[in-house]
Nucleic acid binder design. Structure first.
Lengths: 137, 137
DNA sequence: TTCAGTGCAAAGCGTTTGCAGGGTG
DNA sequence: CACCCTGCAAACGCTTTGCACTGAA
């Protein structure tokens, strides 16, 4: 999968750098991480990786189709590897728990929008609401 | 509906101010507006309304259940009146067109999550993807 | 040897906060 | 006349940008 990275970069005339390998690996390992969390993680391994590099790299990796992002809070976005099964994020606004659901959950919506020619981005979806535990309060 | 405002404020021991009336009216009139757009709008009517007042007021109005917000871009959130019919936002990431759908669109999802005790916030939902016009490119 | 990628520092955008003065109830 | 609300200015968190240097191909 690092080969994936090398291959895709080459296709685009881009270059393989240690930072890009590290950042991709960090996203894979952290599962759901903000840019800042990625930064902290890679700094734990190699010093002097800069925040701007993380932002620029995540952008590149997303364009290459190697990572994805969602918005699970009003703050920083969350990146995850495309190697994970695609899933829908369901977020409780009270306790901030994030549940992952199978894409089947929204299959009817995908189908309905497809009839209008709209291709839904399932992996980016975040559904907000109140979970069972917090409903009482 | 300004009476609504007065009543709800009173219930909470809060005060009715010109700024709060103006900002609520701006959200009603602009239909989908960012805090900054609200600011510009109210400034067109009365000078010297401050950005922080807009933020604080939108927060209050949302707590009172008079306005709602969604995230239709990676930038500032969008506020709209609760007087509009509740609707689901569908956003094309290519041309940035925002389509409004009836909540029926996601009824199956609401039902499925309800079985797990999760109450979905339909009005806050934003679905991203690619619209028919942009699919070709 | 070329030019993409990096680190650094500064600036950017959107938002929040502390405080003192002003206005509602 | 209490105390909520406002404006102002500063600070905040996250992200982007310009620039000179470094290093991958």
């Amino acid at each position: 999968m690092s080969d994936d990275l090398a291959a895709r970069l080459r296709e685009q005339g881009l270059r393989l750098t240690p930072q890009r390998e590290l950042i991709l690996r960090a996203v894979d390992e952290l599962r759901h991480a903000t840019p800042d969390e990625v930064l902290v993680h890679v700094r734990g391994q190699v010093s002097s990786v800069n925040a701007s590099t993380v932002y620029r790299t995540l952008e590149v990796l997303e364009e290459l189709g190697l990572v994805r992002h969602t918005h699970l809070s009003d703050r920083a976005p969350t990146y995850h590897s495309v190697h994970e099964h695609e899933h829908v994020h369901v977020v409780c606004r009270t306790c901030h728990t994030v549940l992952s659901y199978d894409p089947d959950l929204v299959a009817p919506v995908v189908a309905a929008l497809a009839e209008d020619g709209f291709t839904m981005d399932v992996g980016h979806l975040a559904i907000f609401g109140t979970c069972a535990d917090c409903a009482g309060s």
